[in-house]
């Protein structure tokens, strides 16, 4: 049941994959203030505190986003 649900979610997510910006439209997305994920080392320390102070706090980490520069 869970496997089927996850596959369905993955398929729906994959279906949304589409281009919304052209390379020359990604100047703002490449700015330093537009990092979707914070600095990994800084976030590791911060989440260590959150995990001990908030009972259900997780992470909204993921991958990619923005200009796709690296």
């Amino acid at each position: 049941m869970w496997v089927r649900t996850l596959l369905l979610i993955a398929a729906l997510l994959a279906a949304t994959g589409c281009a919304t910006t052209r390379p020359w439209e990604r100047e703002a997305l490449s700015r330093g203030v537009m990092r979707m994920d914070g600095d990994a080392e800084e976030e590791a320390l911060r989440h260590h505190v959150l995990s001990t102070r908030e009972g259900t706090a997780g992470s909204l980490g993921g991958g990619g986003g923005g200009c796709g520069c690296n």
Partner: peptide
């Protein structure tokens, strides 16, 4: 387990959905 989709909604907007 973590499953996420990060989507540029436009030249100045990014959205991420996560299920964990």
């Amino acid at each position: 387990l973590s499953l996420s989709l990060t989507q540029n909604l436009g030249p100045e907007t990014v959205l991420r959905l996560v299920y964990s």
